[in-house]
Design a protein around this nucleic acid. Structure first.
Lengths: 230, 230
DNA sequence: ACCTGAACACCGTTCAAGT
DNA sequence: ACCTGAACACCGTTCAAGT
Protein backbone atom coordinates (compact mmCIF):
# COMPACT_ATOMS: atom_id res chain seq x y z
CA UNK A 1 0.00 0.00 0.00
CA UNK A 2 2.64 2.36 1.07
CA UNK A 3 4.69 1.43 -1.95
CA UNK A 4 1.72 1.92 -4.25
CA UNK A 5 1.12 5.44 -2.99
CA UNK A 6 4.76 6.29 -3.32
CA UNK A 7 4.97 5.07 -6.85
CA UNK A 8 1.78 6.93 -7.70
CA UNK A 9 3.24 10.13 -6.42
CA UNK A 10 6.53 9.58 -8.13
CA UNK A 11 4.72 8.79 -11.35
CA UNK A 12 2.68 11.98 -11.10
CA UNK A 13 5.75 14.17 -11.17
CA UNK A 14 8.21 11.74 -12.64
CA UNK A 15 10.79 14.14 -13.86
CA UNK A 16 10.95 17.47 -15.53
CA UNK A 17 11.81 17.92 -19.18
CA UNK A 18 12.32 20.90 -21.44
CA UNK A 19 9.20 19.96 -23.30
CA UNK A 20 7.07 19.46 -20.20
CA UNK A 21 8.10 22.86 -18.87
CA UNK A 22 7.33 24.55 -22.18
CA UNK A 23 3.91 22.94 -22.40
CA UNK A 24 3.10 23.86 -18.81
CA UNK A 25 4.15 27.43 -19.55
CA UNK A 26 1.86 27.56 -22.56
CA UNK A 27 -1.04 26.15 -20.55
CA UNK A 28 -0.46 28.71 -17.80
CA UNK A 29 -0.31 31.56 -20.31
CA UNK A 30 -3.44 30.32 -22.08
CA UNK A 31 -5.48 30.29 -18.90
CA UNK A 32 -4.09 33.24 -16.99
CA UNK A 33 -2.38 35.49 -19.49
CA UNK A 34 1.21 36.32 -20.30
CA UNK A 35 1.79 38.44 -17.22
CA UNK A 36 0.94 35.42 -15.09
CA UNK A 37 3.75 33.46 -16.67
CA UNK A 38 6.30 33.68 -13.94
CA UNK A 39 9.20 31.38 -13.21
CA UNK A 40 7.99 30.98 -9.66
CA UNK A 41 4.33 30.35 -10.46
CA UNK A 42 5.29 27.96 -13.22
CA UNK A 43 7.54 26.03 -10.86
CA UNK A 44 4.84 25.87 -8.18
CA UNK A 45 2.39 24.51 -10.72
CA UNK A 46 4.88 21.84 -11.66
CA UNK A 47 5.44 20.98 -8.00
CA UNK A 48 9.04 21.99 -8.13
CA UNK A 49 11.44 24.65 -6.91
CA UNK A 50 11.83 27.77 -9.09
CA UNK A 51 15.48 27.00 -9.55
CA UNK A 52 14.69 23.60 -11.00
CA UNK A 53 13.57 25.33 -14.21
CA UNK A 54 17.01 26.83 -14.67
CA UNK A 55 18.36 23.41 -15.38
CA UNK A 56 16.18 23.20 -18.49
CA UNK A 57 16.27 26.84 -19.57
CA UNK A 58 19.15 29.24 -19.15
CA UNK A 59 16.85 32.13 -18.31
CA UNK A 60 13.36 33.43 -18.92
CA UNK A 61 14.17 34.48 -22.45
CA UNK A 62 15.25 30.92 -23.24
CA UNK A 63 11.91 29.77 -21.87
CA UNK A 64 10.21 32.22 -24.23
CA UNK A 65 12.24 30.72 -27.07
CA UNK A 66 11.09 27.25 -26.07
CA UNK A 67 7.46 28.34 -25.92
CA UNK A 68 7.64 29.91 -29.37
CA UNK A 69 9.25 26.82 -30.83
CA UNK A 70 6.67 24.53 -29.22
CA UNK A 71 3.76 26.53 -30.60
CA UNK A 72 5.28 26.73 -34.07
CA UNK A 73 5.90 22.99 -33.96
CA UNK A 74 2.14 22.54 -33.83
CA UNK A 75 1.79 23.99 -37.32
CA UNK A 76 1.05 21.23 -39.81
CA UNK A 77 2.36 22.42 -43.15
CA UNK A 78 0.35 21.17 -46.14
CA UNK A 79 1.96 18.84 -48.68
CA UNK A 80 2.06 21.31 -51.53
CA UNK A 81 3.12 21.00 -55.12
CA UNK A 82 -0.32 20.70 -56.65
CA UNK A 83 -2.12 24.02 -56.16
CA UNK A 84 -1.11 27.44 -57.53
CA UNK A 85 1.29 29.43 -55.34
CA UNK A 86 -1.29 31.77 -53.85
CA UNK A 87 -3.67 28.99 -52.90
CA UNK A 88 -0.89 27.08 -51.26
CA UNK A 89 0.41 30.18 -49.52
CA UNK A 90 -2.98 30.71 -48.03
CA UNK A 91 -2.99 27.10 -46.79
CA UNK A 92 0.34 27.61 -45.10
CA UNK A 93 -0.76 30.85 -43.46
CA UNK A 94 -4.04 29.24 -42.42
CA UNK A 95 -2.13 26.48 -40.71
CA UNK A 96 -0.01 29.04 -38.88
CA UNK A 97 -3.01 31.13 -37.95
CA UNK A 98 -4.79 28.08 -36.60
CA UNK A 99 -1.91 27.17 -34.33
CA UNK A 100 -1.54 30.74 -33.07
CA UNK A 101 -5.27 31.17 -32.53
CA UNK A 102 -5.13 28.28 -30.08
CA UNK A 103 -2.82 30.36 -27.88
CA UNK A 104 -3.59 34.05 -28.42
CA UNK A 105 -1.66 35.25 -25.40
CA UNK A 106 1.42 33.36 -26.53
CA UNK A 107 1.40 34.82 -30.02
CA UNK A 108 3.31 37.91 -28.92
CA UNK A 109 6.24 35.68 -27.97
CA UNK A 110 6.32 34.12 -31.43
CA UNK A 111 6.63 37.49 -33.11
CA UNK A 112 10.38 37.97 -33.27
CA UNK A 113 11.29 34.30 -33.19
CA UNK A 114 10.37 32.89 -36.59
CA UNK A 115 14.02 32.54 -37.49
CA UNK A 116 15.16 31.26 -34.09
CA UNK A 117 13.95 27.68 -34.31
CA UNK A 118 13.48 24.90 -36.84
CA UNK A 119 9.68 24.91 -37.13
CA UNK A 120 9.73 28.68 -37.55
CA UNK A 121 12.43 28.50 -40.20
CA UNK A 122 10.51 25.78 -42.05
CA UNK A 123 7.40 27.94 -42.14
CA UNK A 124 9.33 30.99 -43.24
CA UNK A 125 11.22 29.09 -45.93
CA UNK A 126 7.97 27.72 -47.27
CA UNK A 127 6.36 31.15 -47.39
CA UNK A 128 9.38 32.62 -49.16
CA UNK A 129 9.51 29.80 -51.69
CA UNK A 130 5.84 30.28 -52.54
CA UNK A 131 6.27 34.02 -53.00
CA UNK A 132 9.29 33.38 -55.23
CA UNK A 133 7.11 31.01 -57.23
CA UNK A 134 4.64 33.87 -57.48
CA UNK A 135 7.22 35.94 -59.29
CA UNK A 136 8.56 38.10 -56.48
CA UNK A 137 12.23 38.95 -56.24
CA UNK A 138 14.28 37.63 -53.35
CA UNK A 139 14.02 40.95 -51.57
CA UNK A 140 10.36 41.46 -52.36
CA UNK A 141 9.51 37.96 -51.24
CA UNK A 142 11.28 38.31 -47.91
CA UNK A 143 9.60 41.63 -47.22
CA UNK A 144 6.15 40.39 -48.11
CA UNK A 145 6.82 37.15 -46.24
CA UNK A 146 7.80 38.92 -43.06
CA UNK A 147 4.72 41.14 -43.35
CA UNK A 148 2.52 38.10 -43.76
CA UNK A 149 3.96 36.36 -40.70
CA UNK A 150 3.76 39.54 -38.65
CA UNK A 151 0.19 40.03 -39.72
CA UNK A 152 -0.79 36.54 -38.56
CA UNK A 153 0.61 37.29 -35.15
CA UNK A 154 -1.04 40.69 -35.08
CA UNK A 155 -4.36 39.20 -36.06
CA UNK A 156 -4.63 36.72 -33.21
CA UNK A 157 -3.13 39.00 -30.59
CA UNK A 158 -4.72 42.24 -31.67
CA UNK A 159 -8.29 41.38 -32.48
CA UNK A 160 -10.74 43.34 -30.27
CA UNK A 161 -11.51 41.80 -26.91
CA UNK A 162 -8.53 39.47 -27.12
CA UNK A 163 -5.78 41.11 -25.21
CA UNK A 164 -7.79 42.15 -22.23
CA UNK A 165 -8.73 39.60 -19.65
CA UNK A 166 -7.52 36.54 -17.90
CA UNK A 167 -10.78 34.68 -17.32
CA UNK A 168 -13.76 34.61 -19.64
CA UNK A 169 -15.86 36.61 -17.17
CA UNK A 170 -13.28 39.37 -16.93
CA UNK A 171 -13.03 39.51 -20.68
CA UNK A 172 -16.78 39.85 -21.17
CA UNK A 173 -16.97 42.52 -18.51
CA UNK A 174 -14.12 44.43 -20.13
CA UNK A 175 -15.90 44.23 -23.48
CA UNK A 176 -19.11 45.57 -21.95
CA UNK A 177 -17.28 48.40 -20.24
CA UNK A 178 -15.48 49.30 -23.42
CA UNK A 179 -18.72 49.20 -25.38
CA UNK A 180 -20.46 51.45 -22.87
CA UNK A 181 -17.57 53.91 -23.05
CA UNK A 182 -17.97 54.14 -26.81
CA UNK A 183 -21.72 54.65 -26.44
CA UNK A 184 -21.08 57.61 -24.18
CA UNK A 185 -19.07 59.46 -26.83
CA UNK A 186 -20.43 62.56 -28.57
CA UNK A 187 -22.19 61.30 -31.73
CA UNK A 188 -21.35 64.35 -33.80
CA UNK A 189 -17.67 63.85 -33.34
CA UNK A 190 -17.59 60.06 -33.52
CA UNK A 191 -20.41 58.89 -35.80
CA UNK A 192 -18.47 55.96 -37.22
CA UNK A 193 -17.17 54.77 -33.86
CA UNK A 194 -20.71 54.71 -32.50
CA UNK A 195 -22.07 53.00 -35.57
CA UNK A 196 -19.47 50.24 -35.21
CA UNK A 197 -19.21 50.02 -31.44
CA UNK A 198 -20.11 46.34 -31.30
CA UNK A 199 -17.68 45.34 -34.00
CA UNK A 200 -14.92 47.42 -32.44
CA UNK A 201 -15.18 46.13 -28.92
CA UNK A 202 -15.92 42.47 -29.42
CA UNK A 203 -15.90 40.06 -32.25
CA UNK A 204 -19.00 37.95 -31.81
CA UNK A 205 -17.69 35.81 -34.63
CA UNK A 206 -14.01 35.63 -33.76
CA UNK A 207 -13.21 33.35 -36.67
CA UNK A 208 -14.71 35.85 -39.07
CA UNK A 209 -12.18 38.45 -37.98
CA UNK A 210 -9.33 36.10 -38.71
CA UNK A 211 -10.79 35.02 -42.04
CA UNK A 212 -11.43 38.53 -43.29
CA UNK A 213 -8.00 39.62 -42.15
CA UNK A 214 -6.52 36.75 -44.09
CA UNK A 215 -8.55 37.68 -47.16
CA UNK A 216 -7.29 41.23 -46.97
CA UNK A 217 -3.68 40.14 -46.69
CA UNK A 218 -4.01 37.76 -49.62
CA UNK A 219 -5.65 40.49 -51.68
CA UNK A 220 -2.69 42.74 -50.91
CA UNK A 221 -0.17 40.08 -51.86
CA UNK A 222 -1.94 39.17 -55.09
CA UNK A 223 -2.21 42.87 -55.88
CA UNK A 224 1.54 43.22 -55.71
CA UNK A 225 2.31 40.04 -57.62
CA UNK A 226 3.66 40.22 -61.14
CA UNK A 227 1.13 37.98 -62.79
CA UNK A 228 1.88 36.87 -66.32
CA UNK A 229 -1.80 37.12 -67.18
CA UNK A 230 -1.98 40.89 -66.68
CA UNK B 1 26.30 81.89 -5.36
CA UNK B 2 24.78 79.47 -3.01
CA UNK B 3 21.36 80.89 -3.74
CA UNK B 4 21.92 80.75 -7.46
CA UNK B 5 22.81 77.07 -7.31
CA UNK B 6 19.79 76.37 -5.18
CA UNK B 7 17.42 78.17 -7.49
CA UNK B 8 19.00 76.45 -10.47
CA UNK B 9 18.37 73.10 -8.91
CA UNK B 10 14.85 73.93 -7.94
CA UNK B 11 14.16 75.26 -11.41
CA UNK B 12 15.59 72.13 -13.00
CA UNK B 13 13.08 69.89 -11.31
CA UNK B 14 10.34 72.41 -10.65
CA UNK B 15 7.42 70.11 -10.25
CA UNK B 16 6.13 66.91 -11.75
CA UNK B 17 3.21 66.72 -14.13
CA UNK B 18 1.35 63.92 -15.84
CA UNK B 19 2.71 65.09 -19.13
CA UNK B 20 6.30 65.39 -17.95
CA UNK B 21 6.20 61.88 -16.53
CA UNK B 22 4.75 60.47 -19.74
CA UNK B 23 7.38 62.19 -21.86
CA UNK B 24 10.18 61.00 -19.59
CA UNK B 25 8.79 57.47 -19.81
CA UNK B 26 8.78 57.64 -23.60
CA UNK B 27 12.34 58.95 -23.66
CA UNK B 28 13.48 56.18 -21.34
CA UNK B 29 11.77 53.53 -23.46
CA UNK B 30 13.21 54.99 -26.65
CA UNK B 31 16.76 54.83 -25.39
CA UNK B 32 16.73 51.69 -23.25
CA UNK B 33 13.80 49.60 -24.36
CA UNK B 34 10.43 48.75 -22.90
CA UNK B 35 11.78 46.37 -20.26
CA UNK B 36 13.85 49.24 -18.87
CA UNK B 37 10.70 51.26 -18.27
CA UNK B 38 10.33 50.77 -14.57
CA UNK B 39 8.54 52.91 -12.04
CA UNK B 40 11.65 53.07 -9.96
CA UNK B 41 14.09 53.85 -12.76
CA UNK B 42 11.72 56.42 -14.17
CA UNK B 43 11.44 58.09 -10.78
CA UNK B 44 15.20 58.11 -10.32
CA UNK B 45 15.63 59.73 -13.71
CA UNK B 46 13.16 62.40 -12.71
CA UNK B 47 14.98 62.96 -9.43
CA UNK B 48 12.04 61.88 -7.40
CA UNK B 49 10.78 59.07 -5.19
CA UNK B 50 9.05 56.11 -6.93
CA UNK B 51 5.89 56.82 -4.99
CA UNK B 52 5.74 60.35 -6.36
CA UNK B 53 4.64 58.91 -9.71
CA UNK B 54 1.59 57.36 -8.10
CA UNK B 55 0.16 60.79 -7.58
CA UNK B 56 0.03 61.29 -11.34
CA UNK B 57 -0.81 57.75 -12.43
CA UNK B 58 -2.91 55.24 -10.52
CA UNK B 59 -0.66 52.36 -11.48
CA UNK B 60 1.70 51.21 -14.19
CA UNK B 61 -1.11 50.42 -16.57
CA UNK B 62 -2.35 53.99 -16.26
CA UNK B 63 1.16 55.12 -17.11
CA UNK B 64 1.01 52.91 -20.21
CA UNK B 65 -2.28 54.57 -21.09
CA UNK B 66 -0.68 57.96 -20.73
CA UNK B 67 2.26 56.98 -22.90
CA UNK B 68 0.00 55.68 -25.65
CA UNK B 69 -2.07 58.83 -25.57
CA UNK B 70 1.00 61.05 -25.69
CA UNK B 71 2.42 59.25 -28.71
CA UNK B 72 -0.91 59.28 -30.54
CA UNK B 73 -1.25 62.98 -29.78
CA UNK B 74 1.85 63.53 -31.92
CA UNK B 75 -0.02 62.37 -35.00
CA UNK B 76 -0.89 65.34 -37.20
CA UNK B 77 -3.98 64.38 -39.13
CA UNK B 78 -4.19 65.93 -42.61
CA UNK B 79 -6.94 68.39 -43.44
CA UNK B 80 -8.81 66.17 -45.83
CA UNK B 81 -11.84 66.72 -47.99
CA UNK B 82 -10.02 67.25 -51.28
CA UNK B 83 -8.39 63.95 -52.24
CA UNK B 84 -10.12 60.63 -52.98
CA UNK B 85 -10.74 58.41 -49.97
CA UNK B 86 -7.85 56.02 -50.54
CA UNK B 87 -5.31 58.77 -51.01
CA UNK B 88 -6.47 60.49 -47.87
CA UNK B 89 -6.51 57.21 -45.96
CA UNK B 90 -2.92 56.67 -46.89
CA UNK B 91 -2.07 60.16 -45.64
CA UNK B 92 -3.70 59.42 -42.31
CA UNK B 93 -1.92 56.08 -41.96
CA UNK B 94 1.35 57.70 -43.00
CA UNK B 95 0.96 60.27 -40.26
CA UNK B 96 0.31 57.50 -37.74
CA UNK B 97 3.21 55.43 -38.99
CA UNK B 98 5.50 58.42 -38.76
CA UNK B 99 4.63 59.05 -35.14
CA UNK B 100 5.02 55.39 -34.21
CA UNK B 101 8.30 55.03 -36.10
CA UNK B 102 9.74 57.70 -33.84
CA UNK B 103 9.19 55.40 -30.87
CA UNK B 104 9.38 51.79 -32.06
CA UNK B 105 9.65 50.29 -28.58
CA UNK B 106 6.57 52.19 -27.46
CA UNK B 107 4.43 51.01 -30.35
CA UNK B 108 3.50 47.80 -28.55
CA UNK B 109 1.81 49.86 -25.85
CA UNK B 110 -0.32 51.68 -28.41
CA UNK B 111 -1.68 48.45 -29.81
CA UNK B 112 -4.76 47.87 -27.69
CA UNK B 113 -5.33 51.50 -26.79
CA UNK B 114 -6.62 53.20 -29.92
CA UNK B 115 -10.08 53.52 -28.39
CA UNK B 116 -8.88 54.49 -24.92
CA UNK B 117 -7.96 58.12 -25.52
CA UNK B 118 -9.03 61.11 -27.59
CA UNK B 119 -6.22 61.22 -30.14
CA UNK B 120 -6.60 57.49 -30.72
CA UNK B 121 -10.35 57.82 -31.17
CA UNK B 122 -9.89 60.73 -33.56
CA UNK B 123 -7.53 58.67 -35.71
CA UNK B 124 -9.82 55.65 -35.65
CA UNK B 125 -12.88 57.72 -36.47
CA UNK B 126 -11.08 59.28 -39.39
CA UNK B 127 -9.98 55.91 -40.74
CA UNK B 128 -13.48 54.50 -40.42
CA UNK B 129 -15.04 57.52 -42.11
CA UNK B 130 -12.67 57.21 -45.06
CA UNK B 131 -13.39 53.51 -45.45
CA UNK B 132 -17.11 54.24 -45.33
CA UNK B 133 -16.54 56.83 -48.03
CA UNK B 134 -14.81 54.07 -49.97
CA UNK B 135 -18.02 52.08 -50.00
CA UNK B 136 -17.42 49.67 -47.14
CA UNK B 137 -20.21 48.70 -44.78
CA UNK B 138 -20.04 49.73 -41.15
CA UNK B 139 -18.85 46.28 -40.18
CA UNK B 140 -16.45 45.94 -43.06
CA UNK B 141 -14.99 49.36 -42.40
CA UNK B 142 -14.37 48.69 -38.74
CA UNK B 143 -12.73 45.38 -39.47
CA UNK B 144 -10.48 46.79 -42.17
CA UNK B 145 -9.80 49.83 -40.04
CA UNK B 146 -8.68 47.79 -37.08
CA UNK B 147 -6.48 45.69 -39.36
CA UNK B 148 -4.90 48.81 -40.76
CA UNK B 149 -4.14 50.26 -37.34
CA UNK B 150 -2.82 46.93 -36.09
CA UNK B 151 -0.65 46.63 -39.14
CA UNK B 152 0.91 50.03 -38.56
CA UNK B 153 1.88 48.97 -35.05
CA UNK B 154 3.12 45.62 -36.29
CA UNK B 155 5.22 47.29 -38.96
CA UNK B 156 7.23 49.54 -36.68
CA UNK B 157 7.57 47.02 -33.87
CA UNK B 158 8.09 43.90 -35.96
CA UNK B 159 10.46 44.92 -38.68
CA UNK B 160 13.68 42.87 -38.59
CA UNK B 161 16.39 44.14 -36.30
CA UNK B 162 14.00 46.41 -34.46
CA UNK B 163 12.92 44.53 -31.40
CA UNK B 164 16.31 43.34 -30.35
CA UNK B 165 18.69 45.69 -28.70
CA UNK B 166 18.89 48.58 -26.36
CA UNK B 167 21.88 50.47 -27.73
CA UNK B 168 22.85 50.78 -31.36
CA UNK B 169 25.94 48.63 -30.84
CA UNK B 170 23.96 45.81 -29.28
CA UNK B 171 21.47 45.97 -32.11
CA UNK B 172 24.15 45.76 -34.79
CA UNK B 173 25.85 42.90 -33.01
CA UNK B 174 22.53 41.05 -32.72
CA UNK B 175 21.91 41.57 -36.43
CA UNK B 176 25.34 40.18 -37.28
CA UNK B 177 24.84 37.17 -35.03
CA UNK B 178 21.46 36.50 -36.53
CA UNK B 179 22.84 36.81 -40.03
CA UNK B 180 25.67 34.42 -39.28
CA UNK B 181 23.20 31.92 -37.86
CA UNK B 182 21.24 32.00 -41.10
CA UNK B 183 24.42 31.54 -43.12
CA UNK B 184 25.19 28.39 -41.19
CA UNK B 185 21.94 26.73 -42.21
CA UNK B 186 21.87 23.81 -44.66
CA UNK B 187 21.39 25.38 -48.13
CA UNK B 188 19.37 22.47 -49.49
CA UNK B 189 16.73 22.84 -46.84
CA UNK B 190 16.67 26.63 -46.64
CA UNK B 191 17.57 28.05 -50.06
CA UNK B 192 15.24 31.04 -49.77
CA UNK B 193 16.29 31.92 -46.24
CA UNK B 194 19.92 31.96 -47.31
CA UNK B 195 19.19 33.97 -50.41
CA UNK B 196 17.42 36.62 -48.35
CA UNK B 197 19.50 36.52 -45.20
CA UNK B 198 20.42 40.21 -45.34
CA UNK B 199 16.87 41.36 -45.90
CA UNK B 200 15.55 39.08 -43.17
CA UNK B 201 17.95 40.10 -40.44
CA UNK B 202 18.33 43.78 -41.00
CA UNK B 203 16.66 46.41 -43.04
CA UNK B 204 19.42 48.57 -44.44
CA UNK B 205 16.70 50.86 -45.72
CA UNK B 206 14.37 50.90 -42.75
CA UNK B 207 12.02 53.38 -44.37
CA UNK B 208 11.66 51.12 -47.36
CA UNK B 209 10.25 48.37 -45.15
CA UNK B 210 7.63 50.71 -43.83
CA UNK B 211 6.79 52.07 -47.25
CA UNK B 212 6.43 48.69 -48.90
CA UNK B 213 4.37 47.44 -46.01
CA UNK B 214 2.10 50.41 -46.41
CA UNK B 215 1.82 49.79 -50.15
CA UNK B 216 0.82 46.20 -49.52
CA UNK B 217 -1.82 47.17 -47.02
CA UNK B 218 -3.29 49.78 -49.33
CA UNK B 219 -3.31 47.26 -52.18
CA UNK B 220 -5.25 44.88 -49.94
CA UNK B 221 -7.76 47.54 -48.96
CA UNK B 222 -8.30 48.73 -52.51
CA UNK B 223 -8.65 45.12 -53.59
CA UNK B 224 -11.52 44.65 -51.20
CA UNK B 225 -13.21 47.95 -52.00
CA UNK B 226 -16.42 48.00 -54.00
CA UNK B 227 -15.35 50.34 -56.72
CA UNK B 228 -18.04 51.66 -59.03
CA UNK B 229 -15.61 51.58 -61.94
CA UNK B 230 -15.21 47.81 -61.94
C1' DA C 1 -2.07 69.36 -3.83
C1' DC C 2 2.05 66.99 -4.13
C1' DC C 3 5.71 64.23 -2.34
C1' DT C 4 8.45 61.14 1.09
C1' DG C 5 9.66 56.80 4.00
C1' DA C 6 9.03 52.50 5.50
C1' DA C 7 7.11 48.26 4.52
C1' DC C 8 5.09 44.11 1.89
C1' DA C 9 4.68 40.66 -1.48
C1' DC C 10 6.58 39.22 -5.50
C1' DC C 11 9.98 38.83 -9.15
C1' DG C 12 14.45 36.78 -11.90
C1' DT C 13 18.77 34.94 -10.98
C1' DT C 14 23.37 33.23 -8.74
C1' DC C 15 25.83 30.11 -6.20
C1' DA C 16 26.87 26.42 -3.30
C1' DA C 17 25.12 22.22 -2.02
C1' DG C 18 22.64 17.91 -2.07
C1' DT C 19 21.46 13.11 -4.38
C1' DA D 1 22.17 14.59 -14.40
C1' DC D 2 18.80 16.89 -11.98
C1' DC D 3 17.05 19.41 -8.14
C1' DT D 4 17.01 22.14 -3.51
C1' DG D 5 17.94 26.20 -0.15
C1' DA D 6 19.50 30.39 0.97
C1' DA D 7 20.53 34.75 -0.62
C1' DC D 8 20.62 39.13 -3.59
C1' DA D 9 19.01 42.87 -6.23
C1' DC D 10 15.09 44.55 -8.14
C1' DC D 11 10.21 45.15 -8.94
C1' DG D 12 5.02 47.28 -8.25
C1' DT D 13 2.20 48.94 -4.77
C1' DT D 14 -0.07 50.33 -0.05
C1' DC D 15 -0.39 53.19 3.69
C1' DA D 16 0.63 56.61 6.87
C1' DA D 17 2.95 60.73 7.15
C1' DG D 18 4.98 65.10 5.94
C1' DT D 19 4.62 70.08 3.77
Amino acid sequence: MYGVWLSTVSRTKERLSRDAVAHAAIALTDTEGLEALTIRRLATGLGVTPMALYWHFADKDALYDGIAETVLAEVRLPEGGTDPWDVELRQVLDALLGALAGHPAVAALVKGRFLQNDPGRDITERVLALLRAGGFSAEGASQLGVYALLFMVGLVSGVPGQEIGATEEEREQAVRTQWAALQALPPKRYPCLLESSETLTDCAAGDKWLEIGMDTLMAGIRGRAVTSSS
